[in-house]
Amino acid sequence: MKRRDSLKAIGFTAVATGIFIDACKQPADKKVGNTPATPASTGDAEAGREKFEIERNKRLLSEKFFTENEMATLAILADIIIPKDDKSGSATDTKVPDFIEFMAKDMPSLQVPLRGGLRWLDVQCLNRFGNSFADATEAQRLEMVNDIAYPEDVKPGMEQGVAFFNRMRDLTASGFFTTEMGINDLGYVGNVTNVWKGVPEDIVKQYGMDQYNIV
């Protein structure tokens, strides 16, 4: 039933109350009293989403935050953090830089630390190697990353780089392990209908937990 029909069904009639307000105070884009009754649950691809969420996602996806150079650096860093191995592909195989780009728009508090961190890295590389991080050689990049990848073993002056790299490591892991490739890499086998019968017997035994495997 449409909302207006339902209003009719419960017996609505408009009653002027004699109260007048300035029409200018109504939102200009709103046709008052003429809003179509569209329930949130339409059963389409965007069911279960509020209108503002859908609009927000669309807007964020249409905007661009990082420059091409920044994106290139993010890609190099992401693949240093999660490279291809014999089990699965690399961070860029799962489009981690695009994910980080989205998150920077979704969580604006990430913008300054990421943009500033990338610039910090480039300035460090420029001083050391005469090149930006992206233009440095592979050996130079690794030398740089080695200086910022180990938070409990930090040379003076490298602290900000460590904070940036910690953030990059976390974002890269989030981006990679939330894709099909990452989930297969981990071996997560849920998200399907099944019957939970408890921990498999051989595993209960492996950990010597028989006496606790009760309800």
Binding site: L7, I10, G11, F12, T13, A14, V15, A16, T17, I19, F20, I21, D22, A23, Q26, V32, G33
Partner: peptide, 13 residues
């Protein structure tokens, strides 16, 4: 000037 209305139901639930 617009008219500010209150829609009242005649049904008593």
């Amino acid at each position: 000037m617009g008219k500010f209305q209150i829609r009242k139901s005649s049904t008593v639930h």
